[in-house]
Design a binder for these strands. Structure first.
Lengths: 124, 124
DNA sequence: CCGGGAGGGGATAAAATTATCCCTACCCGA
DNA sequence: TCGGGTAGGGATAATTTTATCCCCTCCCGG
């Protein structure tokens, strides 16, 4: 979490929610943790596009807001498990609604994106 | 909309939705347009913290994804009205769910944020 | 004793997003 | 004719978010 110089205002609940789950990988992480993927290394394997480092940062922010919790087992090799707090659970219906809506649109979305990159001559 | 050099993957619906409504002011804009605020100048008055310029950019992106539409009346002085498309309407339940959840958390959220800035010695 | 896997993070670079500044054009009322 | 309101956008700076790179500890199996 970096210091922000320009204050955001959170007069609308959406903005608050966005602040909490708006990171690039937070959606995946919540989704996976919600599905029962708990250990950091496992999460990383599921989202190999992101670095361990980055995932840790995002997990920390989710933890900061009390969405997820972290059990640290003093074992060797070290074992850590993330889980949804009750508060996080209360978020799941919203997450699911978001995901459902999004899933219905992925198709068109991809087409739009392709058209856009054709226009600009960029092909990822 | 700027060119992105690092491709994002949209394997989960949430990520798609985030791409669409994830801008700093898009939440407000959708909320306001949903409530019947239609004209650009009016929107700007409701969100004075953002510049005209920035709002225009975000509106364009919403329009690009087909969430909102734009009626341009060839009058003088010029008149423009934004509106939710059917597709945009289908998003409103989700938006509302998000907003409700967020609103319930604003209080604690503000406290968290204050504690954070106390720690770092920053007072906006 | 080396490699790999578990966990974690500092320093810094790159990319993406927002902000700022200023300019366009038009019309109206004082 | 000047100030204000309508709408829009180019160029560039500042801020914020992500990525990259390399480092740490510990243990186990070959």
């Amino acid at each position: 979490m970096y210091e922000k110089k320009i204050p955001k205002d959170f007069s609308c609940g959406m903005a608050v929610l966005m602040e909490i789950i708006g990171g690039k990988w937070k959606s995946y992480l919540l989704f996976l943790i919600g599905k029962g993927v708990r250990r950091p290394s496992e999460l990383h394997r599921q989202v190999p596009a992101a670095t361990k480092r980055v995932l840790n940062l995002q997990l920390k922010e989710l933890e900061f807001h009390g969405i997820i919790g972290k059990d640290i087992y003093p074992e060797l090799p070290p074992r850590v498990e993330y889980f949804l707090t009750d508060f996080g659970q209360s978020l799941m219906p919203v997450i699911n609604a978001m995901d459902n809506w999004g899933s219905g649109y992925v198709g068109e979305f991809r087409q739009l994106m392709e058209r856009k990159s054709e226009l600009s001559g960029i092909h990822n």
